[in-house]
């Protein structure tokens, strides 16, 4: 029983805690890095917009490059899967209504799942 007590010194405890934390974090990542982005697109007055195009872009040096496009369904929701970035830019466009400003979302790891609390709001006239 006493044999294990030598493990109770600050070196083992410190590095052990770090190792455990790193392992837990990696475990968390493993379950949450499917690269899913879910959200809704709404019009200027807040009504869901079907058939809007949502563009996910990545920033390369100074310009943003579109990487994926999806279209919203009846309820105005959309799902992007399989992105591999830790910073994504999202923009929704529906030519008849307008466009949402391109917004940056930063993530804690590559391919992190993202559920948008706030819907992308189209602004009339913008493109």
């Amino acid at each position: 029983m006493l044999r294990w007590s030598f493990l109770l010194n600050r070196y083992v405890v410190t590095f052990g805690t770090i190792a455990v934390a790193a392992a837990l974090w990696n475990l968390y990542i493993a379950f949450n890095d499917d690269g899913i982005v879910e959200g809704r697109v709404v019009g200027p007055s807040g009504q869901p917009v079907a058939g809007a195009e949502v563009i996910l872009s990545e920033r390369t040096l100074l310009v943003t490059e579109p990487r994926q496009r999806v279209t919203t369904d009846e309820a105005g929701t959309f799902t992007i899967t399989g992105h591999r970035y830790h910073r994504v830019w999202l923009k929704a466009v529906k030519p008849e209504i307008g466009a949402s400003p391109q917004t940056e979302y930063r993530l804690y790891f590559r391919g992190a799942n993202l559920h948008l609390e706030e819907p992308l709001r189209l602004e009339a006239g913008a493109s």
């Binding site: 830790h86 910073r87 804690y108 790891f109």
Partner: peptide, 11 residues
């Protein structure tokens, strides 16, 4: 404040 610059460094 946010921690995202640390994420940037990592990648």
């Amino acid at each position: 404040p946010h921690l995202f610059y640390y994420v940037d460094v990592w990648y």
